[in-house]
Design a protein around this nucleic acid. Structure first.
Length: 495
DNA sequence: AAAAAAC
């Protein structure tokens, strides 16, 4: 009951309604609360229902935390091992944060209260004995705040040495996380540094640099590894190690080797290092591996894959008669209609595809920018900055931006190509699909995804995606009909 | 017939 009152006060804001970001906290008000009986079942029964029996945790110590004070948490399942009790934090004040950090949260970040995942995970992160944590939560639900706040809070401001390291899959994500960290930690005086590849022109080789003194380091695996082996990044004081997009960081075809190497090197030198693994996705294979990577006594938060889709983002599919028709759909339907709907990201499968689409749209008179990993570093930074500053409306991207990229004005995502497994092109890459969808609808905002489909393979891949996430993706009957597209945007709440 | 990082 207290929740309701609090939410009501939270909603008072001076911003005009149209601009006001929709928060998960608001979304929760509209959900039907979980039936009381469901949360009062015995623990054993609860464990079965939650599907934790196949998780590699100490059976004797297994314990389910239901967080009864947060009924809207019904779709995040918490499993703790050991006897440490955790209480969900309904307010940031419940977390013993410093005044400086609270100021960062309220004044700089303009947060009111923890989101679901923050309420559950932060006590787990911040309570001794600082157990490892594997945390899954919806796209745009505020995972970054969990680990950034975790790092800022656990760092001792008086120790002038690296104490927290965060590893991300792309330089864009590392930069973004560093920006969040600096904003949130503005009043704390805690120092930070980005360990990301630089253009050779304006960078000093690491061998000639002084050792890193920053208290928090956020970067990409290659550069972190390089700094460590060059003995410029000392890890003896590191007490918290974060993997953002952890499923990808520990996937066989991701950064598994680098990540394990870094983790082992740190844990060998720094004895009590807490490891945090965050992502919106953990497929079964990665999940099973990840559970073996963390220490025996750890905490877990997972979401069922059927519940991962974002309710606020409506998905559509449209069949086109030939591959080339996709350009026309983008141009004549989506871009012309989408002009005033916020920003758009168009995902393509290959760098070459990105370049071809870019040329076509520019020839047709559209202003678009394109980002791929092969661009020069400063060029990448410029394109991302322009998009984040709202100077560009439409961004073509490979999967370099599929994960984590946070731009609240993105309302439209176009899958120009569906994400597929590179070794089995008839198999969708479900995780990438979900991450791409998650670029729209940040923090519960409205959004739409258009999947452009050509041929039997696309149809099959799309069907598999629908089955996997138990979602029906509405078909737009006629790719040439402006009316159909308008109807779609209207039903997505964008028009 | 991939993208990412970085060698």
């Amino acid at each position: 009951m207290a929740e309701t009152v609090e939410n009501a006060t939270v909603k008072v804001e001076s911003k005009p309604v149209a601009e006001q970001p929709k928060r998960w906290a608001d979304e929760a008000d509209e959900e039907t609360p979980e039936e009381p009986s469901a949360s009062s079942t015995s623990e054993d029964k609860g464990a079965e229902e939650l599907g934790v029996e196949n998780l590699a945790i100490d059976e004797e110590k297994k314990k389910i935390n239901k967080f009864l004070d947060e009924p809207e948490d019904s779709n995040i399942k918490a499993v703790t091992t050991g006897d440490t009790p955790y209480t969900s934090a309904s307010r940031f004040e419940d977390l013993n944060l410093s005044e400086e950090l609270l100021k960062g949260l309220y004044v700089e970040m303009k947060f009111h209260k923890p989101s679901k995942i923050q309420a559950i995970s932060l006590p787990m992160i911040l309570t001794p004995p600082y157990k490892d944590l594997i945390a899954q939560a919806h796209n745009g639900s505020g995972k970054t705040t969990c680990f950034v706040l975790g790092m800022l809070s656990r760092v001792d401001p008086n120790v002038k040495a690296p104490q927290a390291i965060c590893i991300c899959p792309t330089r864009e994500l590392a930069i973004q996380n560093l920006e969040v960290l600096r904003k949130m930690g503005k009043h704390t005086g805690i120092t930070s540094e980005g360990a990301i590849p630089m253009d050779s022109t304006n960078s000093i080789p690491i061998s000639k640099r002084a050792p890193i003194m920053a208290q928090i380091v956020i970067g990409t695996p290659g550069t972190i590894k390089k700094w460590m082996s060059a003995k410029k990044l000392g890890v003896s004081s590191v007490k918290i190690l974060v993997f953002d997009e952890a499923d990808h960081m520990l996937a066989e075809d991701g950064f598994k080797d680098d990540s394990l190497r870094i983790m082992k090197d740190i844990e060998r030198i720094s004895s009590h290092c807490q490891v945090l693994l965050f992502s919106a996705t953990f497929n079964e294979i990665v999940k099973n591996f990840v559970l073996r990577v963390v220490k025996r006594d750890h905490n877990q938060l997972f979401v069922k894959k059927e519940e991962l889709k974002l309710e606020s983002v409506k998905q559509f599919k449209v069949y086109v008669p030939e591959e080339l028709s996709k350009v026309l759909v983008v141009k004549e339907r989506i871009l012309e209609l989408g002009e005033n709907l916020g920003q758009t990201i168009i995902f393509v499968r290959t760098r070459n595809g990105a370049s071809l689409l870019h040329k076509s749209l520019v020839e047709l008179g559209y202003e678009v920018t394109t980002i791929v990993g092969s661009l020069r570093q400063e060029e990448r930074d410029k394109i991302v900055k322009e998009f984040k500053d709202g100077l560009t409306q439409v961004l073509i991207s490979t999967d370099v931006l599929a994960r984590g990229f946070d731009q609240q004005q993105v309302n439209l995502v176009i899958n120009y190509d569906l994400p597929i497994k590179h070794d089995r092109p008839s198999e969708p890459d479900y995780e990438v699909y979900l991450h791409r969808v998650g670029r729209a609808g940040r923090f519960g905002r409205k959004g739409a995804v258009f999947n452009l489909l050509f041929g039997d393979r696309d149809q099959m891949v799309m069907e598999k995606i629908e089955t996997h996430f138990s979602v029906t993706v509405e078909e737009i009957p006629d790719w040439k009909s402006e009316k159909d597209f308008k109807g779609a945007l209207r039903s997505a709440g964008l028009l």
